[in-house]
Design a protein around this nucleic acid. Structure first.
Lengths: 259, 259
DNA sequence: TAGGATGACTACCGGCCAGTATGATCCTAT
DNA sequence: ATAGGATCATACTGGCCGGTAGTCATCCTA
């Protein structure tokens, strides 16, 4: 799409002064270490660019030339940082899924009813799915991946799944969650959240957390009216923070099936 | 993949007797009309084969040669029945979505609380998503479609979406559904069901209807324990039929994120 | 029984794109 | 100051695949 840039503009590379202006201790290998850092930064830029492109055009409609062009470099440069297209997809997946895994680890230490721990995890889940890596997390199809990559991904997914099921089981035991089938309930909850990746776009009227809250209100209360409690305001929230009222009459740019 | 078949085996085509064995009225153009029927049957076979292939290998990993080979014909034959690959995807989408639209139409005449009408629609929804066209319904990305096809599809999706929202609104009004934001609730419900297409495979221990029932139990009751009613059995069901208990301890072949 | 309609095949084209061979340029270390 | 490594560009290959041209066989109709 863009004409290949000439070699010249590479020069004004903002050659920052070699004196350390970041918090790193001085070291005789300062320069080479800086280069390593540089490399890591660039590598991440490549992955972000890939995520962005996949997100907007889909995996198969994105060529590595596209990704390179978005970074103002050429394809071999991309290949200098990642080994192939498949790995790009994998890295995007990992970047997104890591958020959820860390959320699952963190709530383990909380001493609150399991439903609140679940709520916290699902809020992080929603944020991950709504992030720029959401598409990759949700849309990877194992047909596009080698056998081992596919197995890796499946293992990580399974880990998250069983983490959620465990929280549900614990909630049923401690009485904070209505008796239910943990497996199917986990499917229902995760499905709703996964689907966010299909319709959420960044310049949205609602943030990911607000969406998660709205969903949790549905999940918590259920559709059937409750005999107890004032039935006036449907958006009961269980976890403490982020309580500001949200406008329920926002623009409706999407549908339930997809964007 | 397969070696091209020879011309010979085309002969044993099961030439059925020309006497009308179906309910069509006699007509001087009987034969040509039969041919038209034949053509329609074959066209549907092409679409089913496409759906099956997309379902298993994904849209972009399926070549028209694959589809042709599955039908034991060659690519130009496929092109004789459909105009291009995009149209194949579109037809698969329509085939699946039509189920849901007809369900929405049918419940309009029912004189039961809106929550039960919603429940009936969602059960059909689940069946459609779990059908062989589910993948196409759920995974179509508008980047793969021309502008007008994309608009078509978006319109049909929107129609379904607003049908569901309407049912929710009516349920809130008639008191059968807990007060809630119809838009976000519709997103949550449809997302769960859409996601079924990612993990459901035909030889499953649960049928689509059973899955829908299990989901509806979650949606209806919510996670929070209910003060009223015996909290012993979580799987309360609201709609009348299909009440047999289901084994909650089935094999766990999938995870929440994907199959 | 000729002629049109229908159905299907063989053979090909052309574009896209993942991935690579090669080499230029710059940086760092010794 | 120079060898060697790091970084990135130019230019290419090779395969896959959507789509088409042209042909032939079969069947229905008149």
């Amino acid at each position: 799409m863009r004409t290949r840039r000439t070699r010249a503009p590479q020069a004004p590379k903002s050659r920052q002064q070699p004196s350390a202006h970041n918090g790193h201790p001085a070291s005789p290998w300062r320069a080479s270490r800086e280069r390593l850092l540089d490399r890591e930064v660039k590598r991440e830029a490549v992955i972000r660019a890939a995520a962005h492109a996949f997100n907007h055009k889909g995996y198969h409609n994105t060529s590595l030339d596209d990704i390179a062009a978005a970074l103002d470099v050429t394809k071999p440069t991309v290949y200098y940082y990642v080994s192939n297209k498949e790995q790009l997809l994998f890295e995007c997946f990992v970047a997104g899924v890591e958020q959820i895994r860390s959320a699952l680890r963190q709530v383990k230490s909380l001493r609150v009813p399991a439903r609140e721990r679940l709520s916290a995890v699902l809020r992080n889940y929603a944020q991950a799915v709504a992030s720029e890596f959401g598409w990759c997390m949700v849309r990877v199809e194992d047909q596009d991946l080698s056998a081992q990559m596919s197995a890796h991904i499946k293992a990580m997914k399974s880990q998250i799944d069983h983490g959620i099921r465990r929280l549900i089981r614990e909630g049923v035991q401690d009485g904070s969650i209505h008796s239910c089938d943990p497996k199917m309930t986990a499917f229902a909850l995760a499905g709703s959240l996964n689907w966010i990746a299909h319709w959420y776009r960044e310049n949205q009227s609602m943030t990911a957390t607000e969406i998660a809250d709205a969903f949790m209100a549905v999940f918590d209360n259920g559709l059937r009216p409750r005999g107890t409690a004032a039935a006036g305001n449907g958006a009961r929230r269980t976890s403490g923070r982020s309580n500001r009222p949200r406008p329920s009459r926002s623009r409706l740019p999407q549908t339930t099936l997809a964007r």
